[in-house]
Amino acid sequence: MNDLKRRLAKILAEKSYKEGDFTLASGKKSDYYFDCRQTALHAEGSWLIGNLFFEMIQNMDGAGVGGMTLGADPLVTAVTVISHEKGRPLPGLIVRKQAKGHGTGQYVEGLANFSQGDTVIMLEDVVTTGGSVLTAIERIEAAGLKVAAVCCVLDREEGGRQALEEKGYALHSIFTRKQLVEAARS
């Protein structure tokens, strides 16, 4: 495991990973909660996530990155900034949970940075069942773009990978729960 990943694990364990009794967005009960926003909005955490995602996607076919608001907002921003810094600028887009109630009424923000048919790599903080990212993918494809892959900070290993694969999308994760806990302890 590289130093960036090890450092990110420590910050995630400190700021984002909590054990207890929780109800997830999917409605499932869990003995832990992972609030990635706490790390993604931390200066070093954001920088680490941006670099690790950029490393993960640099050889993928993608004209840019995108994700569902609110969890993906800091992830998309981190990758777009790092991609510019690394000399391979990737624009970003954000998918709204509700269509904009005024103006264009659109679900997807950032489309001016893409052309019809461009390929997007989806970023997600946590994948549990895959439901949120599949909704975001539907909206991106309805806007005339294609999705190359999905990348997440944490794969909870609770069916999301399989749900995405059934729809033809590969899931790449920085960590699984076991990997995160082990890395944070090392």
Results as ranks from 00 to 15, higher is better:
residue 35 D to I: 01
residue 81 V to F: 06
residue 1 M to V: 14
residue 14 E to G: 12
residue 163 A to W: 15
residue 12 L to G: 03
residue 63 A to W: 14
residue 69 T to M: 04
residue 142 A to D: 08
residue 107 Y to L: 00
residue 46 S to V: 07
residue 6 R to E: 15
residue 156 R to L: 01
residue 35 D to Q: 10
residue 5 K to W: 13
residue 25 A to T: 13
residue 144 G to S: 12
residue 89 P to N: 10
residue 100 K to N: 00
residue 107 Y to M: 02
residue 85 E to Y: 11
residue 84 H to I: 07
residue 37 R to G: 01
residue 24 L to R: 01
residue 76 V to N: 07
residue 32 Y to P: 03
residue 69 T to I: 04
residue 48 L to S: 00
residue 47 W to A: 08
residue 34 F to E: 01
residue 89 P to E: 13
residue 47 W to D: 12
residue 27 G to S: 15
residue 42 H to V: 05
residue 122 M to D: 06
residue 86 K to Y: 05
residue 30 S to M: 02
residue 15 K to P: 00
residue 133 V to K: 15
residue 31 D to R: 07
residue 86 K to G: 05
residue 22 F to P: 02
residue 139 R to Y: 04
residue 128 T to M: 09
residue 96 R to D: 02
residue 120 V to C: 04
residue 129 T to K: 15
residue 15 K to E: 11
residue 113 N to I: 13
residue 169 Y to M: 09
residue 44 E to H: 02
residue 133 V to D: 08
residue 14 E to Y: 03
residue 6 R to M: 10
residue 58 Q to W: 07
residue 106 Q to D: 15
residue 25 A to V: 11
residue 122 M to V: 04
residue 45 G to C: 11
residue 97 K to I: 02
residue 182 E to T: 06
residue 69 T to A: 03
residue 102 H to Q: 08
residue 1 M to G: 13
residue 140 I to Q: 09
